[in-house]
């Protein structure tokens, strides 16, 4: 892949974000610059509460920058849009709808005919491995299964970009591995531009085409890593462990 061929989908141009409250101004993102290319899987990686989620919300349009701009497909982001899908840490499912109605929510509110959106939703429900659970309400599903519904819901709306905000942070270690394998499989079969936020180095290396290590608050780009290991990746391969050690060390440096 050469630079010329890659189409830029997301441009984060000199973005700053300050939150104002009674205690004063709080600079969370500081002159942040990076691009994301078409069908690229980018992981925003950084320590604890470093403002990664804020960056994701800026791309999604849930927050607006106080300086600079976010441009998606040539258009400046001014608010949420169905062309950008979101998968959340706390699943944010619609608890009063069953799995099918959750997944088809996007097409439904955008006026897609019932037969067509059912078919589409069924495809994504099958893709995330929830076949047979269409009529279940979210409370009856385990954490991992709820997260699958969240992923299917985002994909079913067929957005250009999928933002994932630490989707597996609340899951136990084994379920997390399973879900990482699932995301790897899904993003191979459904090519999309994905921006994935995590503080877990293993997860970052397992999934990413490119990892962007962010500074702690205020957030800016510290370093980037291209991950060229063959997929599906092996968590205990020497190259994997070596990169993990490197990234973990670099992250510790950002905290100081």
């Amino acid at each position: 892949m050469t630079m010329e061929k890659k189409k830029t989908v997301i441009e984060v141009r000199d973005v700053s974000k300050t939150f104002y409250n009674r205690e004063g101004d709080h600079l969370v993102v500081d002159h942040l610059n990076f691009n994301v290319y078409e069908n690229e899987f980018v992981v925003l990686f950084g320590p604890g509460q470093c403002g990664k989620t804020t960056v994701l919300n800026l791309i999604a349009g849930l927050e607006l920058p106080t300086g600079g701009e976010v441009v998606v497909n040539g258009e400046k982001v001014v608010g949420p849009s169905p062309s950008r899908g979101m998968v959340y840490q706390t699943t944010n499912l619609f608890m009063w709808y069953n799995v099918m109605k959750n997944v088809e929510f996007g097409p439904c509110v955008r006026g897609v005919k019932k037969a067509e959106r059912r078919k589409k939703a069924q495809y994504y429900i099958d893709l995330v491995g929830l076949t047979g659970f269409e009529k279940h309400f979210p409370v009856k599903l385990s954490g991992g299964m709820q997260q699958r519904v969240g992923i299917a819901r985002a994909y079913c709306n067929e957005p250009d970009i999928i933002c994932m905000d630490e989707p597996f942070g609340h899951l136990d270690a084994q379920t997390r591995y399973l879900m990482e394998e699932e995301v790897d499989r899904i993003s191979a079969s459904e090519k999309r531009t994905v921006v994935f936020v995590t503080n877990n180095a293993e997860e970052a290396i397992y999934l990413a085409d490119r990892i962007i290590l962010l500074h702690n608050c205020p957030t800016s780009v510290h370093r980037e890593y291209l991950v060229n290991l063959p997929r599906p990746r092996n968590y205990v391969a020497p190259e994997f462990l070596e990169l993990r050690e490197q990234i973990t060390k670099d992250m510790d440096d950002t905290i100081g």
Partner: peptide
Amino acid sequence: VDENILNAAYMLGAN
């Protein structure tokens, strides 16, 4: 009403 869930609906295109 959970604002995050409302936002999730807006993100999916709800008016």
